[in-house]
Amino acid sequence: MNIIRAEHITKRFTAHTALDDVTVEIPQGSVYGLLGPNGAGKTTLIRIINRITMPDSGHVFFHDKEMTQDDVYRIGYLPEERGLYRKMKVGEQAIFLARLKGLSRHESLVRLKKWFNKFSIEDWWDKKVEDLSKGMAQKIQFIVTILHEPKLLIFDEPFSGFDPINANLLKEEILGLRDKGATVIFSTHNMSSVEEICDHITLINLSKNILSGNVDEIRHSHGNNIFTIQYRNAEKDLKEVLQNKCEILECSTDIMGQGLMKIHIENDSDIRPIISLANENSEIRSFTEIIPSMNDIFIRAVNGTL
């Protein structure tokens, strides 16, 4: 079931079209990545889902019903730019935002203490927001966004401004939220995070949705039938043995005498004979299909060479 379905969204600004007939379906309980180069229209789509901006045409459905303003209040939204009062103290501000989300003062205090503890940032409580670094403010904003445990979370570039350690912390939290039943939508350039945590993605380029679907399916369907074979103790030259069966792209031997071969197989051809041949002539350590990384797919899709 889809928690959000945005159909044929078009949004024009004075000088350019930000979104051109974009349709996305976001399955409930998934971690959904919105990918795309800078200026592709990701943030605009997020702002439309949040009803901050209205589309020129198209509709957004929430649980298969046309989305209303009240639905928005069930969303936890983390904007790309930090939306915090600069002059306010961290703790006070967090309580203020939590109370607006419907938590009591006491409840928000209990939850905030827990999260501050978890991120070991208790001593930020009385600091002013303007004294925080970008990453620090981002953490606060993240906590405030998820504090009321909304069923739908939308993060705009959540990893920007984070060091790798904090980015990992954030990934874990996002997966933890999904495991608790929340749906998470986020936009990013960080492709490694996409492979690690996204179930589904949509790739937006030049205001258009150019690729949508399950991450594993996308990666497998864009494989090029390239395999690597790791082997040792070859009885014959494996290169000669295999060269009639497939195209050999690379062949090397490392200092431990272990061979590594990269081969390309014709579409739809059977790989079993190749495995048998290799097995007869050497000790196979691994035989793996190379699945393109999201990074490759992203670059190829954007360059139009997918």
Binding site: Y77, K101, V144
Partner: peptide, 16 residues
């Protein structure tokens, strides 16, 4: 100021 600091973006998804 709220509009510039994007506080409004956060607020708007919370309050009318």
């Amino acid at each position: 100021e709220e509009k510039n600091s994007r506080v409004l973006d956060v607020m708007i998804s919370t309050v009318k």
